[in-house]
Every structure is written in C-alpha cells, then in structure tokens.
Design a protein around this nucleic acid. Structure first.
Length: 408
DNA sequence: ACTCCACAGGAAAATTGGGGTA
DNA sequence: TACCCCAATTTTCCTGTGGAGT
C-alpha cells in the first residue's frame, strides 16, 4: 500500500460555506428572536421609563436554559442604550461566579465613572457601598443591573447580596437603576424573604420552552445563511429541533447540535449534512459536556466521584454514602490527600447530583439506617478517564478496581 | 409500639488566604 | 510590620427521621 502524505489531510474538500459558522456558536449574539416578540415587548414596556428619567420596576425573567432569557435581555438592554445615546450603564453579572455583596458591587463599580478603581477585595463593605453611592449619584447615569442566575444569590448568603443591591438602587435619591433578574427556578420568588419580596414583585416575564416548530424557525435562518439547500438534509434540521425540544425546549442545544453536525460533515469531506451526523453530534456534545463538568470539578469532588465509581464496581447494589465514604478515605490515601470529613463528602455527593453526573435516592433501610443510594448516570469509563486527566491524581491510575481485597 | 441505625442536612464556628490600612 | 475586613471552604455540633428488628 502506497504511503500517504500526511499533509493530504489538510486538503479537505469541505462543504463550501457561504457564511461564518460562528453564527452557530455560543458567543453569537443574535438580533432576531423568533417567537419572543411578546417577551421583548413586555421588557421594553417595563424598562422604557429609564429613558424618561424615571425609576422603573425591577424585572424578573423566568425560563429554562436555552429559552433565550439571557440573549434577549442583553439585546433589549443594548437597544435601550442605543436609544439613550449610550447614556446607560449596563452591568451584566453572572451570579454563579459573583455571589457576594462585595463582588457584585465591584462589578457594578467597574462600569461607573469615578468608581473604577475600587479594589477587588480589602475594603470594608460599607466603604465600597458609600463610594458607589457617591460615584453613581455624581454621574447621574441610570444603571441596568442584569443578575443572571439570580437564584444563586438567595441560596448563598440568605439574600444579603440581593438585598444590598436593591437597597443601593432604591434608597438613594441620586441613583436611578433597576435590576433584571434572570432565573430558571420557577419557585425562586417563593424562597425570598419578605423584605426582598416587596421590592421585587412588580414585573415578571416568562420564557416558555420552544417546541420543535419554533426551534426550526430559529435554526433555518441561521443554517441558510451559511449553507445552500442542497448541502443539508431537512431531516437533519428536524432532528436537531426535535432533540432540542425534548431537552426542555433548549435552543442552545439545537444550535450546538447543528454546528457540530456541520463540523463533523466537514471533517469527513461530506457534501451533505445528513441525519447521521446529528446523531453523532449528540454523542459528542454529551461527552464534551461531561468532560467539561468533570475536569473542572474541585480535587476532592473528583476523589469522591472516583470513590463512587469504585464502590459501584465492587458492590454494584450498595453504593451508599457511608460506603462511598469508606472508599474515599482509601482513595485519598493512595492519591496522597488528607480526607475531608464525612459531612463534606455528603455535600460533594449532593453537588455531583446537581451536576447530573450521579443520581441518588433517599432510602430507609430500617434497622440499618437511612441513607442515599447512589447511581451513576453517565458512562463510568468516560468519567474515570476524565478524572485521570488530572495530573495531580496520577497515582489513581494504579488503582485496580477488580482487586477488592486490596482495600479490605 | 417502641428502638435505634446511619445517615441527611441546618447552623455556626474555625481555618485559610487574598487584600487592604497605618 | 501588625492588624483589620471579607470570602470561601471545611469542621464541629447538632436535630430529625423511615422503617426493620424486637
């Protein structure tokens, strides 16, 4: 067999795109939002008072992931800014990343003229608060504070962060601003305590999940801006839309699937994006998401996860918190870490469940106590390999899962 | 009907660490 | 330098509980 020049691989006859595929990337900020007219109108009505120098109601946005909450909110805010000739400060804060009163105020301060130099830590809270009040009053520019995943603020320090920010915007005469809170937790409002509730109950907008037809309306304009009709199967788009609709009407998922399908087709020099690529894109996407989740886990979360896998492989039916804890201590010893307390391990198990890597069921074993039965929802081999990518956990490679006696 | 296991999970204290001021 | 403020993480201490065994 004649040897191939490896660089031939660079000469792929890929599908000729007549547009930029980044229109299907997560970073793309669209200008058109099919089936979101109603929501946009409500938001505009709620916020336009800012243009007329009024204080406006705070706004709560509800909707599952991939229903367009964040994109639409940013879009509406930027449109408003345009109308006001740039005389609006838009502070977008992801509360998953910034959830303390301090970090949120620093984030707002970064955008306020005269307050940019507040240090990221060190100052007493009331000092940064006061400086912020002074700078905001002096500049007089209205502020829109977008709090994405606002529910994280309440879970955390009992709503102190949220209360502080509402106080900042509401109780200072010289300051005009409103909060746009985004959440996928429909019971969010119920969890608030009354001092916050009374300020937040004015306006809310709900983003319903997209159905298959609506997802197609989102996908088709984007696809046709980069591919000709002969370059993709309609069935492929339908499939992306259908999968997205299954996943709580998730447009992001549908779009990701489409992008990956096209990329896979290009890599194989296919001339048409067929359904088959969508199926493969789904597998790749699931695996990528899992990998992303696992490799960014804190070290001890990885150790706990590793112990769960271990426990399930040795005693498939009895992975309980206590059992996992036992293996965890041994795993820590092997990896050269001091184990954390069982209370902490228990929390990590809950975290892993939140991430969807494992599932648990609280069950009472009568005389034998009450504990959680733990299951793994993703492929164990994959998880294991992703954990072992961590160079600090090199030593776990030597763990032999079949040799139970080693741990007795 | 009563016990008591093996935890769940809340509250608060303690520790660690990054950054400030004087 | 000593000392203060705050955030994040972990430990300590704790109360609560479904149901098998008795």
């Amino acid at each position: 067999m004649k040897s191939l020049n490896p660089f031939d691989k660079f000469n792929v006859q890929s599908i000729p795109l007549h547009g930029d595929i980044s229109i299907l990337s997560a970073a793309h900020e669209p200008e058109y939002f099919p089936h979101r007219e109603e929501q946009i109108e409500k938001m505009v009505n709620s916020m336009r008072g800012l243009m007329m120098g009024m204080k406006t109601n705070h706004l709560l946005i509800y909707g599952k992931t991939g229903t367009g909450k964040t994109s639409v909110t940013k879009y509406v805010a930027s449109k408003l800014n345009e109308k006001m000739d740039g005389n609006l400060v838009i502070s977008y804060i992801n509360c998953q990343a910034y959830d303390s009163p301090y970090s949120i105020m620093v984030n707002i301060a970064k955008k306020i003229p005269g307050a940019e130099n507040i240090p990221v830590s060190g100052w007493p809270l009331d000092r940064i608060y006061d400086e912020l009040v002074i700078a905001m009053s002096k500049s007089g520019i209205p502020v829109v504070v977008i709090l994405d995943e606002i529910d994280k603020l309440v879970e955390k320090n009992g709503g102190d962060s949220l209360y502080m920010i509402l106080k900042l915007l509401d109780e200072n005469a010289g300051i005009r601003g409103n909060v746009v809170g985004i959440t996928n937790d429909t019971s969010f409002y119920e969890k608030l305590d009354s001092r916050i509730k009374s300020r937040l109950n004015r306006d809310s907008v709900i983003f319903h999940p997209y159905n298959t037809e609506q997802l197609k309306d989102i996908l088709i304009p984007r696809i046709s801006s980069i591919l000709g009709p002969e370059q993709y199967e309609e069935a492929a788009i339908n499939l992306c839309a259908a999968i997205g609709a299954q996943e709580h009407g998730d447009a992001r998922k549908a779009i990701d699937l489409m992008r990956i399908s096209i990329e896979l087709a290009m890599l194989e020099s296919a001339s048409v994006v067929e359904r088959e690529y969508v199926y493969r894109a789904r597998d790749k996407l699931d695996s990528d998401i899992l990998r992303d989740t696992v490799i960014t886990l804190p070290t001890h979360a990885k150790l706990v996860l590793f112990s769960v896998i271990m426990s399930r492989q040795i005693h498939p039916n009895s992975a309980t918190t206590g059992e996992v804890g036992l293996y965890y201590e041994k795993i820590c010893f092997i990896a050269g870490y001091t184990p954390l307390t069982s209370r902490r391990v228990s929390d990590y198990i809950s975290d892993l469940e939140d991430y969807g890597i494992i599932s648990t069921m609280l069950k009472s074993l009568g005389r034998y106590g009450r504990t959680r039965l733990i299951n793994i929802t993703a492929r164990e081999e994959d998880i294991k390999n992703f954990i072992l990518e961590d160079l600090d956990l090199e030593k776990l490679r030597s763990v032999n899962f079949s040799l139970q006696q080693k741990f007795e």
